[in-house]
């Protein structure tokens, strides 16, 4: 994601070639206007609480150890995330020092009110789950977490039981379960169908569309919020398409770059509650949130995007 993802307006300009001269400038204005607007929100089905459809992941990007320079840089990213209407930040004990980095930023920013703290239990040992939850709260500097998920289905039965108890005790507001890279979808489906969870987290993007078959419809049916990880396949999608022209129809939904088009595709799925791209850059976090501020593609446009990408 660090590499020239926003060569953007080149693509936007290409989109405009069929239209009016000087459209690149119009694209810039559109992007700027979208940046200023707040992102669209979706309700969490179990409570109706609204969360912006673009959140912030922390895999790799916030694992900066105790490097003061990079801790400050991460704080700026998180500050920009909140300033531009973001809420949900997701992390895991698996992500090195990411939890501590987020906690550092929240302290520096004076514990911003909109923060929606999402984290995970990541251990194969049932007995370690509660201890890890306490460590996570401490690292974030919070008494209660908004969302705790069982990471990659590890010891999920025991951890879900523990998290349910914590939820009843008011230490967690929502519970969920996660997977990524399309792994263990059958098992995930069974958990979604048979257990009382608020959230499910999975990988979904314009190329990884298997969840559309069963998981996303099931989430709607069961009233489960969906967090989408790896929206850009860790930047691979952006690198893959960065030298390809942005389709002309991208302008119709205010997508001025490939990242915006790819993100709009994801969050326009009606079952998706929030996508969580990770980044180390303030301009990228602003652009990601701007993706959710303008119009989203309808079913017809989604098909056009998928078809276009499929041909590349």
């Amino acid at each position: 994601m660090l590499l020239k993802r926003r060569t953007i307006l080149r693509g936007f300009g290409a989109a405009a070639v069929s239209g009016v001269a000087g459209i690149a400038g119009l694209g810039a204005r559109r992007l700027s206007a979208a940046t200023a607007a707040k992102p669209i929100s979706r309700p969490i089905p179990s409570t109706g609480e609204a969360v912006p459809v673009v959140g912030l992941g922390s895999w790799i990007t916030f694992n900066v150890g105790n490097d003061p320079v990079l801790l400050d840089a991460s704080t700026k990213v998180i500050a920009a995330f909140f300033e531009n209407g973001g809420r949900l930040i997701d992390s895991s004990p698996m992500y090195g020092s990411s939890q501590a980095t987020i906690g550092h930023a929240l302290r520096k920013l004076g514990d911003p009110k909109p923060a929606f703290a999402a984290d995970k239990i990541w251990t194969s040992f049932a007995a370690e789950g509660a201890t890890q939850f306490d460590a996570t709260r401490k690292l974030w500097g919070l008494d209660a977490m908004d969302l705790m998920q069982v990471h990659n289905l590890l010891a999920w039965e025991a951890h879900l039981e523990m998290l349910t108890e914590k939820k009843s005790a008011g230490e967690i507001r929502y519970i969920g379960i996660t997977t990524s890279h399309g792994r263990r979808h059958r098992e995930l489906e069974a958990i979604m169908a048979g257990h009382d969870i608020d959230f499910v987290q999975l990988t979904y993007n314009v190329l990884d569309r298997e969840p559309e078959q069963r998981l996303l419809p099931l989430a709607r049916e069961r009233g489960i919020a969906v967090i989408v990880n790896r929206p850009y396949q860790r930047g691979d999608l952006i690198r893959r398409f960065s030298d390809k022209p942005l389709p002309a129809f991208a302008a119709e939904i205010g997508a001025g770059s490939w990242p915006q088009l790819l993100l709009k595709f994801i969050v326009s799925h009606p079952a998706v509650t929030c996508a969580i791209p990770a980044t180390t850059r303030v301009d990228h976090v602003k652009e990601n949130l701007a993706s959710a501020a303008g119009p989203l593609p309808d079913a017809g446009m989604r098909k056009r995007i998928a078809d276009y990408v499929g041909r590349l």
Binding site: L2, I60, T61, N63, V64, G65, D67, L70, M94, Y95, G96, H181, G182, R183, R184, H185, T203, D208, E210, R234, T280
Partner: peptide, 20 residues
């Protein structure tokens, strides 16, 4: 998607070149 074939070395890398 799915299975061990879906893993790559980069999936096990926790940090960026800059951090290292």
């Amino acid at each position: 998607m799915g299975g061990w074939s879906s893993y790559s070395l980069s999936d096990f890398l926790l940090f960026s070149p800059q951090v290292y």
